[in-house]
Design a protein around this nucleic acid. Structure first.
Lengths: 228, 228
DNA sequence: ATTAAAATGTCATATTAATGTCATACGATC
DNA sequence: GATCGTATGACATTAATATGACATTTTAAT
């Protein structure tokens, strides 16, 4: 099903331009020319993403974002802010109200799409580009490589993301549901048991270099990456 | 090598001011007092960036931008628009013609430099003229030649740029979108899948000297040049 | 200006890899 | 030893990538 993307933008030419891009990218654009207008649309159906202009007549974009965040039913909707300048101050404020991403005008359609896609996929916590090392197991997000004691380890994308997540958050137990949210994405509906299977696949791969017991089962709770 | 920045501005004091800033920032300014004049300079050598005044005698800045975008050979050159006021209407028009950035007069040298830098960074990490060598594969940006174990390899311009980019950024995964932005240019709209085709063409050429597996597929992420 | 050659982007199809689910086996816990 | 949670292997399906062909555009050469 096509994702519904609510655009809140008072300048109609920009609004139309955005709507055009979005529908060309295969999403379903909803148009609102003000925060108030947007609220009405939201009350009818929750959109999947909100593209929110910073400067709006009436309630400002930032106030609107804050309002959305304070309401339980809209709290979880990802917001992408549209700002005129890449002003650092704006960025900070945006983070405060909980915008999921930013985009500075003018922007290329491709950039916009990339952001929407990224937000939709809604992965784990912003995973950094830092090289992760634990007990001779190394994961390099930049080259997208994993080695155990310098031996290259091949794995599928899901196993890679799973390992990436674990190595970014070691010594911490995650339930299957949490892992599904963080590694798979929040809007995906998959069986909890499927996590078991991927854990097994990951362990099998790590077993090549005796790293399989880094991934530990916590009976009744979930899984954990731990050196102990 | 210093980046060439073409300034198109009819008011000579402003033109000189810009040129001064730009040369102090370590770039090479080219001066044009009209769109027509600029065209002549462009026909001699493509600049790396165009600073384009909105208001020009004769052909207006916006028309000129449109013209540049419609010509395949100039389509990818980043354009920074110089506008008198931060007029919203101008901005919309700028979006339409595909300007890469905006700057409102009056502007500080620092701001100008920051924008230029940002635009340059966006599409030119391979700006060097150094001979690139990896595993017997050599690419010489100056003579625009590629050899594998000293055997000359012929390829089309796109494959050359792609290889140039990869060799300048080895051991790093790039998504198809990133490659389109970096190798094709941000203003060009083509399918992600097209990247696959060019990757294949490049691999076919590199296969003549057994270098084809330097270009590796990273499923779910993109492509990478790597010796491992 | 005309033509030929080269390059480019897209599509349809083939190929391969990855994914999610299930049925069943195992093991801990009470 | 019964129950509950986890592990495992197999398998059908889905998704991603590779490939070949083709129409169109560019470029170069007449």
């Amino acid at each position: 099903m096509k994702a519904n993307i609510l655009i809140v933008e008072d300048e109609s030419p920009i609004l139309e331009l955005l709507a055009l891009n979005i529908s060309q990218a295969g999403y379903n654009p909803l148009r609102a020319i003000s925060a108030e207008h947007a609220e009405k649309l939201i009350s009818e159906a929750l959109p999947d993403i909100i593209l929110l202009d910073w400067m709006l007549p009436g309630m400002s974009g930032i106030d609107f974002a804050r309002k959305l965040r304070s309401n339980p039913s809209t709290k979880a909707i990802p917001i992408i802010m549209l700002t005129a300048r890449s002003d650092e101050l704006d960025k900070v404020k945006g983070l405060e109200v909980g915008a999921d991403d930013y985009i500075t005008k003018p922007f290329s359609p491709r950039e916009l799409n990339a952001r929407i896609k990224a937000v939709l996929r809604r992965k784990a916590p912003e995973l950094t580009e830092d090289l992760l090392k634990i007990n001779g197991l190394e994961l390099d997000p930049v080259s997208h490589r994993v080695t155990g004691n310098n031996k290259p380890l091949d794995m599928g994308p899901t196993e890679f993301r799973l390992l990436h997540f674990f190595m970014s958050n070691p010594e911490r137990v995650y339930s299957r549901s949490q892992l599904l949210d963080k590694v798979w994405g929040s809007q995906i509906f998959i069986e909890d048991r499927t996590v078991d299977v991927h854990i097994r696949r990951l362990r099998n791969i790590l077993a090549q270099t005796q790293h399989e017991n880094l991934i530990q089962t916590v009976r009744g709770s979930g899984y954990r990456l731990s050196t102990k």
